[in-house]
Write a protein that binds this DNA or RNA. Structure first.
Length: 170
DNA sequence: CCGGACAACATAG
DNA sequence: CTATGTTGTCCGG
């Protein structure tokens, strides 16, 4: 399996987009575009990497549009590999309207597993396509941001930009 | 090679 | 602090 990838700047840092022949398989916000190949090699040990800025330009632009807060139909072709549970969760995340948030509990209930909140969190963390699958719209039930793998502050920034989310310091 | 046990996790109550 | 669901890893058979 060959994986094409490209990177580009964004208001929140460097963006990495990788895709297989089927579709986008990884999206990540990074501090810089250095270490990109290393990141991909770790995630797809058996894949051959090939930079292809042209082929992925559209995908990259779409991602950046979203980071900028513009809601678009963005029907990106995705090639997500994961367990059934994970796909169920991700699918549910895609259903979250831009600008709003859900708690891990809400998502858990939405997929008919009211007590699988923790598992949902796992799935979110396992989500390879940050931003595209809005894992950042999931917050803790008391309204606080919770954690986020990736750069500190990115999750918050995304929420603020696309939803006008206001930090709630109780 | 195939289970079973166990710990980790971006939680909730 | 405990219960919760799913995964990934590690070990014994």
């Amino acid at each position: 399996m060959e994986i094409k990838f490209t990177t580009g700047p964004s208001p929140l840092g460097s963006v990495l987009v990788a895709a297989t022949a089927k579709g986008v398989c990884a999206v990540s916000l990074r501090e810089s575009d250095e270490g990109t190949e290393e990141y991909l090699r770790a995630r797809f040990p058996k894949a051959e990497l090939a930079r292809d800025d042209v082929a992925l330009k559209r995908a990259l632009d779409t991602v950046r549009e979203r980071i900028a807060g513009r809601k678009l139909d963005s029907a990106l072709e995705l090639d997500l590999q994961g367990t059934d549970f994970q796909r169920e969760v991700w699918n549910q995340l895609l259903a979250i309207p831009a600008g709003s948030t859900r708690s891990y509990l809400d998502v858990a209930q939405a997929i008919n597993r009211p007590k699988a909140t923790r598992a949902v969190a796992q799935a979110c963390g396992a989500n390879p396509v940050a931003v595209v699958v809005p894992c950042h719209r999931v917050v803790m039930s008391d309204g606080s941001i919770g954690g986020y793998s990736g750069l500190p502050g990115v999750k918050k920034a995304l929420l603020v930009v696309e939803g006008g989310w206001v930090p709630d310091r109780s």
